[in-house]
Each structure stands twice: as C-alpha cells, then as structure tokens.
Computed example of a mutant assay.
Amino acid sequence: MQPGSVPPNTFATLFASRKAGEGVLITVIPSDKAPKEAAQIMANNYKQQGMRVLGNPVQIPGQNAYRFTYVSTNNKMHAIVFISGNGKHLANVSILGRHGTGGLALLKGLTSKEDKLFPKF
C-alpha cells in the first residue's frame, strides 16, 4: 500500500492476480480488542455501507479467529474476511474475488513473527 494510505502504526499489503481475478488484503493494527468483537464490528460496518453480509461471524474451530463473507452492492466482488488477534495486534485478512481458491492457497504459506496473530488456513 502507498505511504499515507493507512493510519499510523498500521501495516497493510495487497497481493493481487488479474489472471486469477483475486486479491488478498492483509491489514494489521495495534489493538487489544477481542477478535470476536472486532469481527462483529467489521461485519456491522460493511452492512451499514450497503454490503450484503452472509451470516454472522463464526469462530474458526480451535482458534481465536473469526470468519465472515460479504458481497458488494453490485454483486461483482465477493470477500472472505478473517479476523484474528494476539492481544497486542488485530489482523484482518480478506480474500477478494469470485472464488477465493487462489487467495486461500497463498495464505496457507503465511507465517508471522508474532505468535497467534494470523489464523491457520
């Protein structure tokens, strides 16, 4: 992401493939908020923006991470959103695109220097 496009102390990166028609947006912010609460707030914010959120955030079994899906107002973009945290930071990992398979394959190789920051994909 370009400098100045995200708030201070926030990390954001975008991986995109035109060929696959998918992208993965990873954002990490300093926060001690519980992932469950953060996921619900985010889902509510998307609803207020007119997105169609498909169900409430659900916990990923055995992890302190939550997942929900939304569709843009024009039905052209689908997103799978994962929210997780370790008490110091929250991570928002969003797979953007029609199917999510390419993005999910990319995320299976994700590692972090901070313990339990990202969910296991």
Rank of each mutant, 00 (worst) to 15 (best):
Q2C: 15
P3Y: 08
G4Q: 07
P7K: 02
P8I: 00
P8A: 05
N9R: 15
N9K: 09
T10D: 05
T10Y: 03
F11L: 11
A12M: 10
A12R: 14
T13H: 08
L14P: 01
A16V: 08
A16P: 07
A16N: 14
S17P: 14
G21L: 07
G21F: 15
G21K: 13
G21S: 07
E22T: 02
V24W: 05
V24Y: 01
I26C: 02
T27A: 15
T27F: 14
S31C: 05
K33Q: 11
K33D: 13
A34I: 06
A34Y: 07
A34V: 09
A34L: 13
A34M: 08
P35S: 02
P35M: 03
K36E: 15
E37W: 02
E37G: 01
A38R: 02
Q40S: 11
M42N: 11
A43R: 03
Q48K: 14
Q49C: 11
Q49T: 14
G50P: 09
G50I: 15
M51A: 12
R52D: 09
R52V: 03
V53W: 00
L54P: 13
N56P: 05
N56M: 12
N56K: 09
I60P: 06
G62V: 11
Q63V: 04
Q63E: 13
N64D: 14
N64C: 03
A65S: 04
Y66V: 00
F68H: 03
F68I: 05
T69G: 11
T69R: 15
Y70P: 00
S72H: 07
S72I: 01
T73G: 11
T73S: 08
T73C: 09
T73P: 04
N74H: 15
K76N: 15
K76P: 08
K76V: 05
H78M: 07
V81E: 04
F82A: 01
I83G: 01
I83K: 00
G85D: 02
G85H: 00
G87T: 04
G87K: 01
K88I: 12
K88F: 04
H89S: 06
H89D: 08
H89K: 12
A91Y: 02
N92R: 15
V93D: 00
S94F: 06
I95M: 05
L96C: 05
L96T: 05
G97H: 06
R98N: 10
H99E: 10
G100S: 03
T101K: 11
L104Q: 07
L104S: 12
L104E: 11
L104K: 14
A105M: 07
L107R: 02
L107T: 01
L107I: 04
K108S: 10
K108G: 09
G109T: 13
L110F: 07
L110I: 13
T111D: 09
T111R: 12
K113H: 15
K113F: 08
K113N: 14
K116V: 06
L117G: 01
P119C: 03
K120I: 15
F121R: 02
